[in-house]
Amino acid sequence: MSSSEILPQTPERVLSARAGGWDLLGSEISVLFRRRRTWAMLIAVALIPILLAVAVRLSSSTLEPGEGPPFLDRVTQNGLFVGFTAMVVAIPLFLPLTIGVVAGDTIAGEAGLGTLRYLLVAPAGRVRLLLVKYAGAALFCLVATLTLTVSGAFIGAALFPVGPVTLLSGDTISVPESLLRSLLVAAYVTVSLLGLSMIGLFFSTLTDVPVGAMAATIVVSVIAQILDVIPQLDWLHPWLFSHYWLGFADLLRQPLDLGSFGQNAIVQFCYVAVFGALAYSRFVTRDILS
């Protein structure tokens, strides 16, 4: 890694180290998105809407309204619903899985490869490294959801007629407005995954074994969703990071309801703050041996 060269601590160096944060971010992002693993995950994400659309296209049976995952019965009438259906299908397991892999790998991956201490020799510092790693994971959340949305829109437009979209409220909106809503949904889902990303980053600071951190992150996301369906724990539900994951349905109502967007953002912010603080304390006090 370019920024891991050992540099003398002169005042000029410290100054450029401020810009070095951006260099570090740039190199982190390019490493992340040059990885085959990242590409494989993004391709798998893009395949979800494609599989859905192809299956619906090839199938001769027509779905009764309300059958199958939400919006699936609308897909044959309007290809723009492919993206929404794929999002509903991907949120509970597949997206958390990819986030778990990326976020769990952040620190533990470097430690496992033995590159962590070289990263820290540069004047970047541990806090900056944490921030850069988190920014990389958050960017992956955005890219993954955008991949899903875009591939859904393309495959939907390729296989099915495209027209004005019927919202949950029964009102109809034009194609450009529906694309705008798709982007809003992607933004919502990205925000939804920020809390889990920070949890993954925290787990990643605990261990030198990246697989352990990845598995722990995925397990936590599954546990949160199990807790979310136990009615005896309903006092806890609004504070589970997974509680608002499917709340993007509110973006498909007329008039647009941004209430759950805000609530989701607050909950995710709480998780980012708590696990960010834990990750900071753990990482700056940790002995880096590898």
Binding site: C270, A273, V274, G276, A277, L278, Y280, S281, R282, T285
Partner: peptide, 20 residues
């Protein structure tokens, strides 16, 4: 110094819970 660095790990969750 180390125990000072552990401070955020206790303070931030406490603040979040208090706010909630």
């Amino acid at each position: 110094r180390n125990s000072l660095r552990w401070l955020p790990a206790f303070v931030v969750p406490a603040v979040v819970v208090a706010a909630v």
